[in-house]
Design a protein around this nucleic acid. Structure first.
Length: 755
DNA sequence: GAGTTTGAAACT
DNA sequence: CAGTTTCAAACTC
């Protein structure tokens, strides 16, 4: 079964690649082509997830928890293993996966975990080529590097979570590796990196775990878009200067998803090269990490920022995006790897024949679903895709849409860079990236700002933002025990980690049961409690809905804000925080949201930087300007990111839809945070959202969405399904949205094959 | 770093 | 559903 699926996927991919469009894209950027492929799988996964009820917070939590547990185990094992050698690592990883799998089984987490290990083994086994080994080795090395204080991790850790970094690195690495190595490889790399990090920190480990696990790979894929973009920019520049690595890797990417082992191997070898890793190493910092090789080298080389950025980006992802990562990884394994991985996938696949991996994805999705956000496929998106595609490609074969988690964060990096989640930012940032000229800087800046705020100057800010950002949310809960939505970590579906300054925290893997139970409880009250608060739609969306047209912003807050004193110009406002304009749903007073006013006067954030918009808006408001300007301008640095100022965006990860639309899953807490179900006010937005979804579905996931029954399947019934549809909301209209999503998932597979 | 403000989340 | 309280982030000093 797996094999056939893989075959299909590959075929679909090949088709894409063959297509003129694909070629064109490739010409633009090597990475792009792959994306589409990846996406499809992702979708499948998503769809699956929905079925299983994975979406339900419990599942998600379970996944995470299981992951955490795994991580811990892993870490323990991993350490020895690492020292021992690759093979050992693999075995350990497998074991860990198995264990995790046991934990996750219910949630489907198992497959994911399992796959990675298996895939790796298989890959290694299957791939006689030494190159694979190299690749594997690289990751290990990377791990070590990461693990080592010297590595980026240290920096990252200082600022944020190590785990995230590992993830980031792993992610970045993955893309390259994945293509080349195929499935198993990337995973290993990811795992390794994560492990190293894990070693460093316990909790971090947890996060790292996620990354480490197959998830990491998936994450990479999903995230990759964003990351990839960012990386891309970096890479491009880096390439110019001296990134030897990149060129090769990049070339590889576009071409192969899984297939070209040789190249990959070569790349990997290069990566292996001590000179490269370490060399840069100074760079090493994080870079070392895995990811880095490629990206880092490129970017990394550029310096700290690269690593940091990566780390930052990944941070968010790790925690939240784990699921996706897992899925993607699986897919990668499936696609690239081969049978073994496929076997695993098969297990998961059951639901979605097309994607063996789909199953895997699902679990991950669950977590990320919370953060789901939809982004329309705009030109920008396309760009993102392209940019990101490199990564995505690796992971997913054609794809329609992918769901990003969180915040996950995920986090900001991709959004800002790749995702375009915030269209505005995206535009700005992306443009910068695309241009490549600025790409580097822009990417760097964006990354820095968005993801972590690595810059020392704004440490606090960064930290805060970072914390806010999906990637590394850090809470400081004192009374809620981090078991309520007050807790950003909890709301984002992630465990609290060291950076958190919470007290009496129960949001830890150790208290998995409690966390899950609490989540369930909250979900029972509000199925969308963990759904992304902000739903993103493509810029083009306007077409879709009347509402959308009203709201220039691509994204909208589901429930809308209720600001009275902040004029929606401060982070108190969830809309503003999420980088989206206020909508009809909002009950805010004196709305001056720079991203878009409730009235509709809101500036379109998409292209123009929010700032610009703000000015305009402000002009109207007059007084507001003063207020807004400060914020906006203060962020000059953020200009690129300015759009980003909003924490959410950065965190979000975008997933490409089959057609071109992206779904951004915000890792950011905001995204995840529960939203009103169905308040009347929300309804419209929902409608809008729904419309967006529909549009997206039609455009992006046309058949898939339409075809599937997902909604019918269980989405409705199971809370999880609700989560899946988060954007839609609880209202009936929302349901339709849900349906779309669900449908999309199931259909997804079909799309892939078709295209 | 402490204190205040703010608005979401939770509760009634 | 509306009002109130609780909570933690955002913000200010």
């Amino acid at each position: 079964m797996d094999t056939p699926e893989k075959t299909q996927i590959s075929s679909s991919l090949s088709m894409f690649e063959d297509s003129p469009v694909f070629n064109y894209i490739n010409s633009l950027s090597p990475i792009k082509p792959v994306k589409s492929i990846h996406l499809t799988p992702a979708f499948n996964l998503l769809s699956f997830a929905s079925h299983p009820s994975i979406f339900t917070s419990p599942h998600v939590s379970s996944h995470k928890e299981s992951r955490f547990l795994k991580r811990h185990n892993y870490m323990d094992q991993s350490k020895p293993v690492l020292s021992s050698g690759e093979g050992t690592k693999v075995s350990t990883s497998e074991e860990a996966c198995l264990e995790a799998g046991q934990l996750c089984n219910s949630s489907a987490g198992l497959p994911e975990n399992f796959d990675p290990g298996v895939s790796l083994d298989d890959a290694s086994l299957e791939l006689p080529n030494e190159p694979l080994r190299y690749i594997i080795e690289l990751p290990q090395t990377l791990k070590y590097d990461c693990g080592s204080p010297d590595c980026d991790q240290a920096p990252c850790i200082t600022e944020t979570n190590c785990a995230t970094e590992s993830t980031c690195t792993s992610l970045s690495i993955v893309p390259f590796v994945q293509d080349d190595s195929g499935n198993g490889f990337p995973d290993d790399g990811v795992e390794i990196a994560g492990i190293s990090q894990i070693k460093q920190k316990g909790e971090t480990i947890g996060c790292a775990w996620e990354n480490l696990t197959p998830d990491a790979t998936d994450m990479l894929i999903f995230n990759s878009p964003n990351d990839s973009e960012a990386f891309r920019g970096v890479i491009q520049k880096s390439l110019d200067p001296g990134t030897k690595f990149f060129p090769a890797p990049i070339s590889v990417f576009p071409k192969n998803h899984t297939t070209e082992l040789p190249q990959t191997t070569v790349d990997s070898d290069e990566l292996k090269d001590p000179s490269l890793q370490t060399g840069e190493a100074g760079v090493t910092d994080c870079m070392s990490g895995n990811l880095m090789h490629n990206v880092e080298t490129g970017a990394g080389m550029s310096a700290p920022f690269s690593s940091e950025s990566c780390s930052n980006l990944h941070r968010g992802f790790r925690r939240r995006c784990l699921d996706f990562e897992m899925l993607s990884a699986r897919r990668n394994n499936l696609n690239g790897s081969s049978n073994t991985s496929s076997s695993v996938d098969k297990q998961l696949v059951p639901v979605m024949p097309d994607n063996g991996s789909s199953v895997c994805i699902v679990p991950g999705i669950g977590l990320h679903l919370n953060a789901l956000a939809i982004t329309s496929s705009d030109d920008k998106n396309t760009k993102h895709r392209i940019l990101c595609s490199g990564t995505q490609k690796l992971s997913f074969p054609s794809s329609t849409t992918s769901i990003l988690t969180p915040k996950i964060g995920q986090e900001a990096v991709h959004e800002s860079l790749a995702s375009a989640s915030t269209e505005r930012e995206t535009d700005v940032v992306e443009n910068g990236v695309q241009l490549a000229e600025d790409a580097f800087q822009a990417s760097a800046c964006a990354i820095n700002e968005e993801f972590n705020q690595t810059s020392p100057n704004k440490k606090r800010r960064r930290l805060e933002q970072a914390g806010e950002n999906e990637a590394c949310k850090r809470c400081s809960c004192k009374k809620s025990k981090c078991l309520k939505l007050y807790c950003e970590c909890f709301a984002a579906g992630v465990y609290c980690i060291e950076p958190c300054s919470c007290q009496d925290c129960f949001n830890k893997p150790i208290h998995e049961d409690i966390v899950l139970a609490t989540r369930k409880q909250i979900e029972s009250r509000n199925p969308l409690a963990f759904a992304p608060k902000v739903i993103r739609t493509s810029d083009s969306i306007p077409e879709v809905g009347d509402d959308s047209s009203k709201t220039p912003a691509s994204a909208r807050h589901k429930r809308g804000c209720n600001c009275k004193k902040s004029s929606c110009l401060k982070k108190y406002c969830e809309c503003y925080q999420g980088g989206v304009g206020c909508s009809i749903n909002c009950r805010c007073e004196g709305c001056k949201n720079a991203f878009g006013r409730k009235d509709g006067s809101a500036m379109v954030e998409t292209e123009g930087a929010p700032e610009e918009d703000e000015e305009t808006d402000l002009d109207e408001n007059g007084v507001d300007r003063n207020l807004e300007k400060p914020d906006m301008f203060n962020n000059e640095e953020q200009n690129l990111v300015s759009a980003l100022p909003t924490p959410l965006q950065p965190c979000r990860t975008l997933v490409q839809l089959p057609l071109g639309s992206f779904i951004s899953i915000g890792s950011s807490s905001t995204l995840y945070k529960g939203q009103g179900y169905g308040k009347p006010s929300i309804i419209r937005p929902r409608n809008t959202i729904e419309k967006h979804f529909q549009t997206v579905a039609e455009d992006e996931m046309p058949e898939m969405l339409l075809d599937k029954d997902c909604a019918g399947s269980g989405m409705k019934t199971s809370p999880s399904s609700k989560r899946i549809c988060p954007p839609q909301g609880s209202t009936p209209g929302q349901r339709s949205g849900r349906k779309l999503i669900l449908q999309s998932i199931p259909s997804f597979p079909s799309l892939t094959p078709q295209h």
